[in-house]
Every structure is written in C-alpha cells, then in structure tokens.
Design a protein around this nucleic acid. Structure first.
Length: 736
DNA sequence: CATCTACAGGTTTTT
DNA sequence: CCTGTAGATG
C-alpha cells in the first residue's frame, strides 16, 4: 500500500489524470455546483427527490480526484446498498478512469467488515471471523434464549432479535443498555439474552450485521491509534442516503471524520422511511448541531416529474411537521397530467382497472418497464399478479429474497463454512442432516449438549461421542460417515480450487441430487441457483474472500431484458423512477398502515406520509392513485375509508375519476365512505368457471403442462407433468 | 426420524 | 384465505 503521507509532504503531487476539475461542472445548476465545489468542512446536501443527487455525489468524488490533490485511497465513500456502491464506482470510473478503483467505496457494512478484518484483533476478533446473516442470527438468539429458559411462545425470538438489533443500531453494547428502550423486554431478561448472544458470537468467532459497525466503534474506543490512522487516511468522506443512517453509523462517521473534518452527507429527510429498521432521522435534523459550522445546501430543482405531480407531492409532504423544509421546483414548465385519483368498489376491481390502464398506456407506446405498481405491503402484490397473469401482461415482482438468502445458497455456503471453519456450529447444525442422512434432532441435541458441556465445537463433540460410543448404532454410523466426508472435503480443499471444491461437495453430499429429485416447482430453479453459485466461484481464488462476498455483496443476477411491468413495495421503489406509477390501496388502515399508526402514533403517520411522498415522486409523467371501498383481506370482507393522504392532495392538481357504469355513487370523498356495509357484488374476475373439465390438458405459465383432476368452481386441481398436484385458479391456465 | 394435521398469525426489511 | 410452524403420530 502507498504511504498516505506521500501527498501530505507535498513533494510529489501526481499530475491530475483525466479532465480538469472545473470542466466537470458543466451542466450542473448553481446549487449542484456549490455542492460539488464545497469540498472542505462539513456539508449537508439536502437533496429532494429527482434533484440529481447521484450526479452530485459522483461529480463531487470525480472533482476531488481530478484535481490530483488527494489520492483515491484517501477518499471514503459510503452507501447503503451494494447497488448504489457499484453504480457510484462505475460512474466515477467513467469520468476519471482507473483512479476510481482505489477509492475506499462501499456499504457501511462492507467497509466495517474490512476494518475489522484488518484491525479487529485489537479487540479480540479473529481475522477470519464469520459474518452471520439475519437467519443465522435468529437461530442463534433463539438457541440462547431457550437455553436460558425463556418460553419462545411468550417471548418470540423474533422480537428478542429485533430488540437486540435496535441496541446495536444505537451503538449500545450489552454493558451499556442501562435504561435504554427495550431494557424491560422479556421481564428485563432481554439484556441477559443480549449478553449471552454476544458471548456465543465470540465463541463462534462471528459477527452479525450490526456487529460490523458496533465492533468498529468498540475498536475505535479500545485502540485510539487505529482510529487515528483511519482519521489521517480519510481526508474526504462522502455519504449517501444520510437520512437512513442509524446512531451507530452516525457515530462511526463522526469518529472517522474527526481528522480532516471534511464530511459531506447527502440525504433527504422527506424520504426517511426506515426508522423501524433503526434509521435515525435525527442524524440529518441535528447535522448542523453535531458539526458546528456545517454548510447546508438544498437541491430543490426537480428534473424528473411534471408540474402537477410535484405540486401534489409537495403539498402532501408539507403536512409533516418534523422536517427541515424544502420545496421541489419543476425544472421544466411542463405541468403534464394531473394526478388521477380513482375510487373503485373492490380490490379485484382495483387490480382490473390498474391493469387495464397499464395496457392502454402500453398500447400508446409506454414500455412496460416504465410502468410500476407500488404497494404498501407485500401481500398486496398478489391481486395484481393474478390479474397481470390472467391478462398475459409480463411483469416482475421486485424484492424477493436476495440471492444469498436463498435456502439452497445458504446451505451450500454452510458446507463451505464448515469445511473452512470446523468450529462453525451454526453451519454444522444447518447441514448435518441435509440432505437427510439419519441424523435427527435428537442426535443433534445430544451433540449440542455435549459441546456446551465441554466447551468445544460441535464437530469436536461429535467426534468424541463417536469415539466414546455414546450414541445409538444408527446415529453413530450416520454421524461418523458425515464427519468422514467433511474430513475428505477439508483435505480436498487444500489442493482444489474453490469451484472444484464446492462442486465435489454438492455432488458427493447428495445435496444437489436432493433438489434434482425434488418434485416441487421451485426445485429446478434451486438447481439453477446452485449452478450460478458455482459459476460465481470462478471469480475467486480464495474461499474466504468468496464467503465474504456471498454474505455481504452478492445479488440476484439481473439479466432480464424482457419488457416487464414492475410490482413492488414503496420501500423497494425508493431511488427508482418510472414514466407511469400506480399507487393502489390508498385506504386508511392499509396506507397509512394501521399498525404504524397504533405503534408509533404521529411519528408513524409522518413516516407513512413520507412513504406516500416517495411513491408520488417516483413518477415522471403520470400517477394514478386508487382506493377500494371494500376488499377481502385474509378472507374477510373489510370496508375502508379512502386514505387521509388523499385529503393532503390539492384539488387543483388532481383529477377524480368515477367508475363508469357504477352509478357514479363511488366514494370519491372520505365523507362518503364506507360505501356499503354488506359484501360487495362479486365480479368473477378470475375466470370462466366450467370452461374446464376433468381429464383436460392445460398449460400454466409457471407450472407448465398438466391434466385437470378436479374442478371446483373456478378452482382447478391439476396434476402437472413437472410440478405435481396443484390447486390453481382457472384464470391462470389455458387449454393445451 | 419423517410425515401428517391443527392452528396461529399475517407491514415495511438497504446489510 | 393461505402459509408456515408446532406437536402428535406412524
């Protein structure tokens, strides 16, 4: 590594590579220019939706580098998502070239992990610690809590886990909990669970996601020299999505920036929608207090949306009290279309109407990829999926499980982890009986018991139990066969490359065969994913490096070029934009969500409103807000009032649409609803009952060809050739 | 130890 | 309504 002091000595400043800094400013507006050029000191760039935030961020980084006054590795750029990090790296590379490669650029978590790998030994964290994801974390907390005698029914591990995570988000270790919120949870024993969980993590040489920051803070406290080194090194720090940082991340940034004090945070308090995940809007609201003398620069010129959309969004968000205040101004004078507000009778009507409008837009030339349906909660996607599927409109649901969160990937990774790290008990437990090899819960429990009693890893405990003949003959045989296999793989790992190793493991263990023989419809996809994992391994010489990549960075392969409409949650839509956006389910209780209201009151309502603001500002040219008078939720008919957010939209900028042929009696104002007390008329949207008969051959988009076994109204029971017996709505199949 | 049945519970989820 | 999990059963 290059000596960071080479530049500060001022002797050999390398000549600027690429463009001159001032040339980069062409095309920026005055605020953007100011945000780029104010390189010294603390700067908060309040960047409203569509105001060119990414452009400012990348230009600012390029501007620093292009001057040649700072080495790339003296710049720290922090994002939340890998996607954002990748995009920033790509865009800066386009501007300044290869220099961009050595900028310390990444997510909070990956940068934290890098620091801990380097210096974590100073706080007793081995260099090769394992990174646990949410699933591992939950299993471990559950184990610990149950081990302490807590009834998982009364104190769900899930809840304990979130209490502990909130502590970590706030930078609070087990010894610092004090009177922190949540301290009373589980009769005050949550703290003890936290402490035991941390002990357990230490025993496993593991960190969960929260630890990647929490342990950095601990490191900075315990080893001031290490902190000082980072402080000297990072002369310029750049942070994206600052409104989403939690307390720990805020402290992390503050600590690192104390050397040169050049900290630039970009964010938008009006897009803070992750407080329930520990994000602390206070970080942005208190910025000038935390960094006295800080400059605040507002970006308010919106280059994305037409006038009516912006006017509606601005008026809506103006109803929030807790904000720094910003007004989006349209860059163009184009008012465009008013925001459509459309009431319908039922949830099915809503899906039908939305899909019809989307199809009409497509006919008039809007690509499906420029149309999005943004819902409040995941369960709402279903109605739209059904309708889109039956209409044959290509669509994608964004935001399924991440690649590395998939069961099959985690299983494969667990094999690798166990091979590399025999003490990885979580990996051991995960795959010891997967595929089934006759090592049941009872046996695993015995091994765990002995491991706990003797303070050894489970692998070791299992070996000892075999040697001492502590087990039933069956279990003993199965377990020793498993351990022998792992031993063989471990030996193999010494010579083979990563891909060869995993390939051998997946075949030799029977894991791949397990999925190949599985009859469920998603099994082939899992086999595909495993192949993808194998292919990804080619890029890595070192298994450890790969495991880090898999647990922190790896994403679903995009690779989908077909023109599809997007369906996703509002949360997933943040940072994206589309020509046309549909915002369904604007009904009190759904959006704003009832639980948000119940649990966090006025604060919750404001966050819901920010979510609505995010939704509206995703659209360039058109927004359609819809609400249904009644919908079936969990099989129960429920009448709803139109969302109070509809009242926040100024009449001048919206167009209320009444359904034709429905008597014009739809509740277009809140006072008119709920519209009816009894069940609404059934629409029968899902299909033509009686169109299918037993024995008929049919085709289904997902499951392929099959034969109808039974007909029950519009539900069919079909024996699919590949996917097996399924119950399917008649609307989803076509005669074959 | 695997498979079946009963039953609770169902907001959002960047790492 | 439907899905995931706990416990009882073979």
């Amino acid at each position: 590594m290059i000596d960071p002091f080479a530049i500060e000595d001022g002797t050999e400043v390398p000549p600027p590579s690429g463009p001159a800094p001032e040339d980069l400013l062409a095309g920026l507006n005055p605020e953007q220019t100011e945000a780029v050029r104010t390189t010294e000191g603390a700067v908060l760039v309040l960047s409203g939706a569509g105001t060119g935030k990414t452009r400012v961020l990348t230009t600012r980084l390029a501007y620093l580098l292009a001057g040649g006054f700072v080495q790339p590795w003296q710049c720290l750029a922090v994002t939340f998502t890998n996607r954002a990090a990748r995009e920033m790296r790509e865009r800066v590379t386009e501007i300044v070239g290869a220099d961009a490669a050595s900028v310390a650029l990444g997510t909070f978590h990956s940068l934290g992990a890098r620091m801990l790998r380097r210096d974590g030994e100073r706080i007793g964290l081995p260099r090769d610690f394992t990174i646990l994801d949410a699933d591992d974390q939950l299993r471990l907390i559950k184990q610990v809590a149950v081990g302490m005698g807590l009834d998982p029914k009364r104190w769900p591990p899930q809840a304990l886990s979130s209490v502990i995570q909130r502590w970590k988000d706030r930078g609070v270790g087990p010894d610092q909990v004090g009177a922190d919120p949540g301290a009373e949870y589980a009769g005050g024993r949550a703290v003890a669970v936290y402490r035991a969980y941390q002990d357990e993590l230490a025993r496993l040489s593991a960190c969960d996601f929260g630890d990647l920051l929490l342990k950095c803070l601990e490191l900075f406290r315990a080893a001031p020299d290490v902190l000082a080194r980072y402080q000297r090194r990072f002369r310029y720090i750049l942070v994206d999505e600052y409104q989403d940082t939690n307390v720990a991340q805020g402290l992390w940034l503050k600590a690192l920036s104390m050397g040169h004090r050049n900290l630039c945070c970009v964010g938008d308090d009006d897009q803070s929608i992750y407080s329930w995940r520990g994000a602390e809007v206070g970080n942005i609201l208190r910025f000038t207090h935390d960094f006295p003398g800080a400059r605040v620069i507002r970006l308010e010129t919106n280059y994305r949306s037409t006038g009516h959309i912006l006017a509606a969004a601005s008026a809506l968000i103006a109803h929030n009290a807790d904000r720094m205040g910003k007004t989006l101004r349209p860059a163009s004078g184009d008012w465009g279309e008013k925001v459509k507000v459309r009431g319908v009778w039922t949830g099915e009507d809503e899906a039908r109407v939305v899909v019809e409008e989307a199809e009409a837009l497509q006919r008039r030339g809007t690509p499906l990829s420029e149309i999005a349906v943004l819902v409040r909660a995941g369960y709402q996607t279903r109605a739209f999926e059904e309708r889109l599927m039956s209409q044959g409109v290509p669509y994608r649901v964004v935001g399924g499980p991440r690649f590395y969160e998939r069961q099959e990937i985690r299983d494969a990774v667990a094999y690798l982890r166990l091979i590399r790290q025999p003490a990885d008990d979580l990996a051991f437990e995960r795959i010891v009986n997967l595929p089934r090899r006759g090592i049941g819960d009872a046996t695993v429990e015995q091994v765990r018991e002995r491991a706990r009693a003797t303070g050894t890893p489970m692998t070791r405990a299992a070996e000892e139990m075999i040697a001492r003949n502590d087990l039933s003959a069956r279990a003993r045989g199965a377990l020793s066969r498993f351990l022998a296999d792992v031993g063989d793989w471990r030996a193999f790992a010494a010579t083979a490359d990563a891909r060869g190793l995993l390939s051998e493991v997946l075949e030799g263990s029977g894991y791949l065969d397990m999925w190949r023989q599985d009859k469920s419809p998603d099994a082939p996809g899992r086999v595909e994913n495993l192949k993808e994992l194998l292919a990804a391994l080619d890029e890595f010489a070192d298994l450890g490096e790969f495991l880090e990549y898999v647990s922190l960075v790896m994403e679903n392969q995009g690779g989908d070029e077909t023109d599809r409409l997007s369906v996703m949650t509002l949360h997933a839509a943040k940072g994206l934009e589309f020509d046309r956006v549909f915002l369904p389910g604007w009904e009190d209780g759904i959006f704003p969500n009832q639980r948000a209201l119940d649990e966090t009151g006025a604060k919750g309502l404001e966050e819901e409103r920010r979510l609505a603001h995010v939704g509206l500002t995703r659209a360039r040219k058109g927004v359609t807000v819809t609400f249904a008078a009644a919908r079936r939720i969990y099989g129960q008919w429920q009448n709803n009032m139109p969302s109070r957010f509809i009242d926040d939209l100024p009449e001048d900028h919206i167009e209320r649409i009444s359904e034709s042929g429905m008597g014009g009696s739809l509740p277009l104002a809140r006072s008119a609803a709920p519209a009816f007390a009894a069940a609404p008329p059934s629409v029968g949207a899902a299909g033509k009952e009686g169109a299918y008969a037993r024995g008929q051959r049919v085709f289904h988009d997902k499951f392929g060809y099959g034969e109808v076994r039974a007909v029950d109204g519009n539900k069919l029971e079909i024996a699919f050739d590949k996917a097996g017996l399924k119950k399917v709505m008649a609307g989803f199949v076509a005669p074959a």
